[in-house]
Amino acid sequence: MSLDYLTALIAAVLFAAAPLILAALGETISERAGVINLSLDGTVLFAAMVAFAAARATDNPWLGLAAGGLAGAGIAAVLGVFGLLLGASELAVGFVLTLFCRELAYFMGHGQARQPGPDLGALNLPFLSDLPLFGPAIFRQSPVVLLSLVAVGLVWFFLMRTRAGLVVRAVGEAPAAAVARGLAVTRTQFLCCLAGGALGGLAGGLYSLSVKPGWGHPQGCEGAGWIALAIVIFGGWKPVRVALGALFFAAIQVAGIALQDVLPGLSGTLFQIAPFPVMILTLLVVNLRRSAAFREAARRVPLLGRLVPRTAGGAPGAIVGALDKGF
């Protein structure tokens, strides 16, 4: 395997991971504040359509991307109004929104289908892009990769190192305690929900303006939001691990495409669906690893002990068991 091929592979993985990273980071912020935004998949799809349409209308892909972010925040606002202000079940509303946004995207985007439009182009930063291996993969490629990597750092810094981030985590861990300490719980949750939705919207923009350019029925990013939701669990609600999880799934997609060249007999559709069984399997492994039964087995078989998560980790207190409550 030549160095060039390896560089190309890294570039492809980073490229495919960029929107997944943004969407999963958005959901991480939202869930860290205690709001499960199940509308993520619809948000990504709808924002992809809005971003593409806006980019065509203004002939500026960056304005399109911003419009995508706004669209995502708008959908999150609907969820916030229903879930936080009206007190409806977040899960039910989120799920309805995800189906609704998908249909809305195809309905409103009918005129955009299979039309040419602008995209985000490619970076070529001097010096940096000459670094070995990662230079070309990050700096001589679509700006979305750089964008997503910067976002990981920013979100990590915000959540773990700022006072506002501390408030977010406190609100998500124990809303009752946060109220008692005079923190504005609902406002914090609403803002985090909006921020998470905006990141999901940006992810949609990255798809239609760069990673899977254009609009069509079906758009290539269908299901990406669900993968991102699973990645958040996979990453234990920690921004950096969540980003690594996104890279892992992107690597699977890229491997599928690479294998397609090697094994042309296998149908392309099988590779398209490959991330979904992998998603189920990773959730299975992650959840079993956290179970008491596994810890006990690890106590007896030292080799397994290395696989036991060191920290209790787990979901923010406010959303523990939320999925089991039904609607």
Binding site: A88, V93, F100, E103
Partner: peptide, 23 residues
């Protein structure tokens, strides 16, 4: 020459407005 997904749009809107009314 509209997309047939309008059905899903109407359904979603209806369920959401009912949620709102119920709350």
């Amino acid at each position: 020459s509209l997309d047939s997904s309008l059905a899903g749009v109407v359904q979603g809107v209806l369920v959401l407005t009912l949620f709102a009314a119920r709350r």
